[in-house]
Amino acid sequence: MTETHPPVALDAGPDPALTALESEAIHIFREVAGEFDRPVILFSGGKDSTLLLHLAIKAFWPAPVPFPLLHVDTGHNFDEVIEFRDRVVAEHGLRLVVAKVQDWIDDGRLEERPDGTRNPLQTVPLLDTITEHGFDAVFGGGRRDEERARAKERIFSLRNAFGQWDPRRQRPELWNLYNGRHKPGEHVRVFPLSNWTEADVWAYIAREKVELPSIYYAHERDVYWRDGMWLTEGPWGGPRDDEEVLRKMVRYRTVGDGSCTGAVESTATTVAEVIAEVQASRLTERGATRADDRLSEAAMEDRKREGYF
């Protein structure tokens, strides 16, 4: 996403399915702008949040995006992703709010987990920052194909005053009509990519020539095998004595806390090659590469009930 004008396809014919998904997402952004006072877009620099930002730019062009961005930074991110995040924010003149998990650890509001992973620690900083800034609508890049708990959620997902999700309070969404009503202190999570699949995301990235962090494409990296995934060393720690470090050609299907986000062996260095891999895969990206979703059968749903995305 290096261009400062709305990117358009130059060499690909229109795909009606992608065009319909794009139109739906743009409609959702504009609905939120009309219904809510203080929306914010979650932006980590990952592919789904980058796609969200791309769609937001299209939705409001030639005006600037009217919302700030928010990143809950675990401190265990990949350097390539943070560099990309900051560059995109600067190029588009956007305002980025960063909630650092480390600040919550330093002042005692959170404690490090024994396993070292910080992904589950994002909930409290997220909810505190939403309250501090008075955000009443929070855009996220969640998709229904990622995980079974996300498949249950509506595009407009009401959260109570404690940021918690109750599946029993789901509202019907018929004919693209969205109910954004909420009481003081409540807020709504908004998922414009709900109906997209991983294959749709990559097809749209190809069509629109959306730039992504380099780690989404195959590259050489030192990795070690743990819990069925290739992990890499970082500020979150490294291999145990019995874990051998190998140099592999890998790429990341999703990015998050480095302690629990695995790479997959790959030779896909282009968008077309990534699309071919995605189409051949039998595992969702989170199921294949996110250890935090393997804690229990309902790991994601439990975290969502507490306020996680």
Rank of each mutant, 00 (worst) to 15 (best):
A218L: 03
E244I: 10
V97W: 05
A59Y: 10
G13E: 15
E306A: 15
H92M: 09
L55R: 06
F162Q: 13
D166Q: 06
K248A: 13
E208G: 05
G93M: 11
F36N: 12
T50L: 06
E3T: 15
W175N: 15
A268H: 00
L158N: 04
E198A: 11
G140P: 00
E297D: 12
L231P: 06
V255T: 11
Y204I: 04
L42H: 06
L212R: 00
I130W: 01
A137R: 02
H27A: 14
W202S: 08
L53A: 09
T117Q: 05
R150H: 12
T19D: 15
R159P: 06
E233Q: 14
K47M: 01
Q164F: 11
V250F: 10
R290P: 05
F67M: 15
E208L: 13
Y252P: 01
I130G: 02
H187C: 13
Q170L: 14
H76W: 10
E233N: 07
I205V: 15
V271N: 03
P235Q: 08
V210E: 01
S214V: 14
P14R: 08
R150Q: 12
E208H: 07
R247K: 10
I155V: 15
F60G: 14
R95W: 04
S194K: 05
V245A: 08
D79R: 09
R159K: 12
L52D: 08
A33F: 04
R282P: 02
E22M: 08
K209Q: 15
I105P: 00
R148L: 15
V40L: 03
T2C: 07
R30I: 12
N179W: 12
W196Y: 12
A288T: 04
A56C: 07
R221I: 12
G262E: 00
D106W: 01
P16E: 01
S281N: 02
D128P: 06
R87K: 10
V188K: 03
P192Q: 03
A20N: 04
F139Y: 07
G75E: 03
V188Y: 04
S194Y: 08
A63M: 10
S194M: 11
A218D: 05
P172G: 09
R251G: 13
E220V: 01
I155S: 06
F60L: 12
F135T: 05
T131Y: 03
C260R: 01
P6L: 11
I41H: 02
R148H: 14
E301I: 11
V138E: 07
E198W: 04
W196V: 09
R247H: 11
V8F: 14
A59E: 07
R247S: 13
D37F: 13
K248H: 12
E153Q: 11
T19W: 10
T4R: 08
V201N: 04
L283P: 01
P172K: 05
L21T: 08
G141W: 02
P125A: 07
F135L: 06
H187D: 14
D227P: 02
W104M: 13
A203C: 07
P62I: 04
N176L: 15
L231G: 10
R95L: 10
E285A: 15
E211I: 02
K209D: 15
D11V: 13
A56Q: 03
T4V: 14
H71A: 14
V210A: 06
E211F: 08
R143T: 13
R154I: 11
H92C: 13
L42P: 00
H71V: 13
E31M: 14
W61K: 04
